[in-house]
Computed example of a mutant assay.
Amino acid sequence: MQGYFRDATQTEAAFKAGWFATGDLVRQDADGYYVFVARKKDVMRRKGENVSGAELDRIFGEHPAVEEAAAIGVPAELGEEEIMLAVQLRKGQTVNPATLVAWAKDRLAAHKLPRFVVLVDAIPHTPTHKPAKHKLKADTTLLARAVDLAGGAATR
């Protein structure tokens, strides 16, 4: 890649010591192949810790009632972010948000548990079928509809 079309600033920011930095996080499997894990930008900062959105998506997606989950950062009252989890349930399933988060307590560190949970009809997707978290962040109704597990319904 030579650069971003007519965007010298973005091009300069994307190159490090002559190498294009994709922003992708990968792991190497036992056979030596690299496997895509998540985008570097899909990391939230909560209580002084980095939290991987992809990890939360995977863990909550393992719940038997959940079709798909997508974690995003929302502004916290005192800086950094709180975690909001958008959840699409499987057909015919129901789940209480507090029960869902309690289910995850043995699977995640306490600082990774979402404060807000919102049930959605569908998680939007990118053309590569990844959760379109930018669309979730742009939906100003989500936080208002979310259950605030630190004190009832969200009021922001």
Rank of each mutant, 00 (worst) to 15 (best):
Q2N: 15
F5V: 14
T11S: 01
A14I: 03
A14T: 06
G18R: 03
A21G: 04
A21K: 12
T22I: 11
D24P: 06
D24Q: 11
R27G: 11
Q28I: 15
D29G: 10
D29W: 12
D31P: 00
Y33N: 15
Y34H: 14
Y34N: 12
Y34W: 15
V35W: 09
V35M: 10
K40A: 15
D42K: 00
R45W: 11
E49R: 09
N50I: 03
N50G: 01
N50P: 01
N50T: 08
S52W: 05
G53C: 13
A54N: 02
E55W: 06
E55V: 08
L56I: 11
R58D: 02
I59M: 03
I59E: 03
G61P: 01
G61F: 00
E62W: 12
P64N: 04
E68L: 05
A69K: 04
A69C: 10
A71K: 06
I72L: 12
V74M: 07
P75F: 11
P75Q: 10
P75E: 12
A76C: 03
E77F: 13
G79H: 11
E81S: 05
I83H: 02
M84W: 09
L85V: 07
V87E: 01
V87R: 03
Q88I: 06
K91A: 15
G92Y: 09
G92Q: 06
Q93F: 05
V95C: 08
V95D: 01
N96M: 10
P97L: 08
A98P: 10
A98E: 15
L100F: 00
V101K: 13
A104M: 04
K105T: 15
A109S: 14
A109W: 08
A110N: 14
H111W: 13
K112E: 12
R115Y: 07
R115W: 11
F116H: 14
V118I: 04
L119N: 06
D121C: 02
D121G: 10
I123R: 04
P124L: 06
H125V: 02
H125C: 03
T126R: 00
P127N: 04
P127V: 01
P127Y: 00
T128H: 01
T128Y: 01
H129N: 14
K130W: 02
P131Q: 01
P131C: 02
K133V: 00
K135R: 13
K137M: 12
K137L: 14
D139C: 12
D139F: 05
D139G: 09
T141E: 14
T141K: 13
L142Q: 06
L142W: 05
L143R: 05
L143M: 03
L143A: 07
V147W: 13
V147E: 15
D148A: 04
G151D: 08
G151Y: 09
A153R: 13
A153L: 12
